Computed example of a mutant assay.
Amino acid sequence: MCGLKVHNHPSGDASPSREDREMTETMREALELLEVKVLDHVVVGAGKPVSMAALHLI
């Protein structure tokens, strides 16, 4: 089973924040126990969405 997380930044800056990185790691560790692999965490802002997987943050 695989999962994907998407959320927006109302500020318009889609750069993953420290909190985004920490939450993604916590979520990845928890879901690993259920044999769910997190494939990506996409942050949406005013411009182009940012993939944390593409930035090698997952």
Score class of each variant (00 low, 15 high):
K5M: 13
V6S: 10
L33D: 09
E19I: 08
T26D: 11
K5I: 14
A14R: 08
E32K: 15
H41V: 01
P16Y: 02
V38N: 05
H56V: 00
N8D: 06
P49C: 05
M1A: 14
H7A: 04
R18N: 11
E19Q: 13
T24V: 04
S51H: 07
E22H: 06
P10N: 03
E29I: 10
L55F: 00
P10D: 03
G45Y: 10
L31W: 15
P16M: 06
N8K: 03
L34M: 14
G12W: 11
E25K: 14
A30P: 00
E35M: 11
V38I: 12
T24W: 00
C2A: 11
G3C: 15
T24A: 13
L57T: 00
G45W: 07
L31D: 06
A14F: 10
A14G: 07
S17V: 01
G45I: 08
G12R: 04
K37I: 05
H41W: 10
V44H: 06
P16W: 02
V6M: 15
A54R: 13
V42G: 04
L4H: 12
G3Q: 11
L33K: 15
R21W: 02
E29M: 12
H7W: 07
S17I: 00
V38L: 15
H9E: 01
G45M: 06
D40E: 08
I58M: 12
L4A: 08
G47D: 12
L34N: 07
A53F: 12
A53C: 10
L55K: 12
A30T: 10
L55Y: 01
H56D: 15
L4R: 05
M27G: 03
K48I: 09
D13E: 12
G47F: 04
D20P: 02
P10I: 02
K5W: 14
I58D: 03
K5Y: 15
H7S: 08
R21G: 00
R28A: 14
T24H: 10
K5H: 13
G47Q: 02
V36W: 11
G12D: 08
S15G: 04
R18P: 00
L31P: 02
E29V: 11
N8G: 14
L57K: 01
L34E: 13
M52E: 04
V43C: 04
G3Y: 15
E32H: 13
V50M: 09
R21A: 12
H56T: 04
D13K: 05
